[in-house]
């Protein structure tokens, strides 16, 4: 949002809001009863045995928790914006870690398997996603031009394609390609069929992104190019596409991030990518959570890296035009 030059009072510094918030938070903690958690144990000098402390213990625990919570918010509200963001990120991350830790994870189990998950699983995931995004981009350029052309065949084929592949669940496409093609006599391995399904599906979405990007260039650009005697291929290549790239990059980055995670769907084909290994490595020892949380962290880390790359590319194009 575009910032105004006049600053409003912080809601947190208004007494009414502060009291309302405190009451709400207290009610929340009271309702969800944290007496039997680590907090109850911590307060046992006051409330005695948490399990026998009853409503009194429940109230004391939720009261202490809400005081800590509100004081924490108040303290943060006095910091500068960047510091605020950092602290809140850090605290939310701690909460996430606490959530993960509450499953009683066995770190040595993770340590013994994480090598394979990264060397095999992460590598396969990146490999499948990267190849698919390249193919999907190529499909999208052709598809977008076809959808914008006056050629009936091109338009019909492209719009049928986008309609079909946006209309089917990706998982279904994966099955259809892997199990359907062999029945027609084409034997395809798991990885190529996974790549094919991802490319076709995301190619369809990206066709629409590219089409919108091309259409957003003012028609004056076409007219000026035509008036100079440019042919349409040249206009697209040299005038229209270069200008639509800054418009196309942000949504394409989102697609890439989405594809990276949707590549987990090809695990149903038995490809040893991150998701498949996360499911299978923990199975024998009944240590599912360890592997699932490890995979979650790897996926998350990857998307953070991709988001940073995307931001950098966006900045680069913003400078130029």
């Amino acid at each position: 949002m575009f910032v105004d030059t006049v600053v409003e009072d912080k809601a947190l510094h208004k007494p009414v809001f502060l009291i309302g918030l405190s009451v709400t938070v207290l009610a929340f903690f009271f309702a969800f009863n944290f007496t039997n958690t680590i907090f109850g144990e911590f307060l046992s000098p006051v409330i005695g045995n948490p399990e026998e402390s009853g409503l009194f213990g429940r109230f004391v625990v939720s009261f202490v928790l809400s005081v800590i919570f509100v004081l924490n918010l108040l303290a943060i509200s006095f910091a500068r914006l960047k510091v605020q963001i950092l602290i809140v990120w850090f605290e939310l991350f701690l909460l996430f870690l606490a959530f993960a830790y509450s499953f009683d994870l066995k770190l040595s189990f993770i340590q013994s398997r994480i090598g394979l998950m990264i060397s095999k699983g992460l590598f396969t995931t990146i490999y499948i996603s990267a190849v698919s995004i390249v193919i999907a981009t190529a499909i999208a350029i052709v598809g977008a031009i076809a959808k914008l052309s006056n050629n009936g065949f091109a338009y019909a084929i492209a719009s049928f394609y986008t309609s079909l592949f946006r209309g089917l669940p990706l998982l279904l496409q994966v099955y259809l390609i892997y199990k359907g093609l062999p029945q027609l006599g084409f034997m395809v391995d798991a990885i190529p069929s996974g790549i094919a399904a991802l490319s076709l599906c995301y190619g369809a979405y990206m066709t629409e992104i590219f089409r919108a990007g091309i259409q957003s260039i003012p028609k004056g650009q076409w007219e000026a190019s035509r008036a100079l005697g440019f042919k349409s291929g040249l206009i697209l290549r040299k005038i229209i596409l270069p200008q639509s790239i800054p418009i196309i990059v942000p949504p394409t980055g989102n697609q890439f991030i989405a594809m990276l995670k949707d590549s987990s769907l090809v695990s149903v084909l038995g490809i040893w990518e991150l998701m498949y290994l996360a499911k299978t490595l923990g199975q024998r020892d009944f240590r599912h959570m360890e592997m699932l949380i490890t995979a979650a962290m790897i996926y998350w880390g990857l998307t953070i890296i991709l988001e940073m790359i995307q931001a950098r590319i966006e900045r680069k194009y913003q400078q130029k035009t």
């Binding site: 004056g220 650009q221 000026a224 190019s225 100079l228 130029k320």
Partner: peptide
Amino acid sequence: IDIVRQDIGMVFQSFNLFPH
């Protein structure tokens, strides 16, 4: 048509320069 257009210059109300 592109041969004809090469010989006919045109200046528009909204300039239509190539911004990139």
